[in-house]
Simulated scan of single mutants.
Amino acid sequence: MTDWDIKKLRILRTLADRGTVTATAEALHMTPSAVSQQLTNLARQLGVVLLEAQGRGVRLTDAAHLVLRHTEAVFAQLERADAELAGYLAGEVGEVRVGAFSTAIPALVVPAVAALKRDHPGVEVRIRETEAAESYELLSTGAVDLALSLAAHTPADDARFTLLTLLEDPLDVALPPEHPLADAPSIRLADLASDRWIYGGSGPWSEITRSACEAAGFRPRQAHSASGWTSILAMVEAGMGVALVPRMVSTRAAGVTLRVLTHDRPTRHVLAALRRGAESAPAVARVVQALRTTAGSRPARL
């Protein structure tokens, strides 16, 4: 029977994900020469060629991709084994590392952690603020156990992850208090086609704003660029433009007029992502349930 070396298979899996030996070495805290040596030994053990030279780098062979297809099932089963062993040894005691984007932390993660402290004090949560787009990289390298991300930044059909929808977060429009539509009976996104807009120059919120406006029939005219909600809302309050704001941010918008969009009603979907198989770990399951309860208790309207 073939000698399947889990450590070496993990290196091959990381190379497939990162693309280069150097990036793989950085992710696994190894030297590039050690990565190359381990993969050479793996190829010898399996009796197949796993890598081929491509310019200054390497590419995975068909045999390597075949190995990786089976490897995903192996790692998922090992995650389940770890989860069951953790439940047996620790019961409801455990540490869960959660990566979450900035607006999700006060709106979802902090209330969920408060509930866990009350109901399951043995479960300790460590929070790491992340960009939504980097969540899956942190999961794949084991830097976090659970990540909150947005559906717009979810890799399609990735067998390594389990995805759970937590919340549909509506997008409201933030207007200066003196805006002509601040007191209008109803408002739709297309009514703001000629306004000056405030949103990030790049990243998820830039994409979400542009996509929502384009779906409403216009391309937003960007007047100012900012990535933090404090800056965006301060500029809106000063009459420098309008902005789309997720409902989870509404508690910070004291100086602006927030209006629910009556027709377009764009939303963003907030997801919890885990390495496949890890969802059965008792501590992780407690955190997921607390997040779901918190998400379900949020008000649907302003």
Score class of each variant (00 low, 15 high):
A86N: 12
A86M: 10
G87V: 13
Y88V: 15
L89F: 12
G94R: 00
G94Q: 05
E95W: 00
E95R: 01
E95G: 15
R97G: 00
R97P: 01
R97V: 06
R97D: 08
V98G: 07
V98Q: 04
A100Q: 08
F101V: 04
F101M: 09
F101A: 05
F101C: 13
S102G: 10
A104H: 06
A104Q: 11
A104F: 01
I105P: 01
P106M: 12
P106V: 00
P106T: 04
V109P: 03
V109N: 05
P111K: 09
V113K: 00
V113A: 03
V113Q: 02
A114I: 07
R118S: 11
D119S: 14
D119F: 11
P121F: 05
G122M: 01
V123Q: 02
V123P: 01
T130Y: 11
T130G: 03
E131L: 09
A132L: 06
A132F: 07
L138Y: 11
L138I: 13
L138T: 12
L139Q: 04
L139W: 08
L139F: 05
S140K: 06
T141E: 06
G142P: 01
G142C: 05
A143E: 01
V144L: 14
V144D: 00
D145Y: 02
L146G: 02
A147E: 00
A147D: 09
A147G: 10
A147V: 11
L148F: 03
A151F: 11
T154W: 07
T154Q: 13
T154A: 12
P155D: 03
A156L: 04
A156D: 13
D157A: 13
D158K: 00
D158L: 08
F161V: 12
T162Q: 11
T162Y: 08
L164K: 14
L164Q: 14
T165G: 10
L166E: 12
L167G: 13
E168A: 14
D172V: 15
D172F: 14
V173H: 02
P176T: 09
P176A: 06
P177N: 07
E178V: 11
E178R: 13
D183V: 15
A184T: 01
A184Q: 02
S186R: 04
S186Y: 07
R188S: 08
L189H: 00
D191S: 09
D191R: 02
D191F: 00
D191I: 03
D191V: 02
L192N: 09
L192P: 02
L192I: 13
A193N: 03
A193I: 03
A193T: 06
A193D: 08
S194A: 09
S194L: 13
S194R: 11
W197C: 10
W197P: 00
W197Y: 06
G200E: 08
S202N: 07
W205A: 14
S206R: 02
E207S: 15
A212V: 02
A212F: 00
A212C: 06
E214N: 01
E214C: 08
E214D: 08
F218C: 11
F218S: 10
R219K: 15
R219F: 12
R219C: 15
S225C: 08
S225F: 04
A226Q: 13
S227Y: 00
S227V: 15
G228R: 15
G228V: 14
W229E: 02
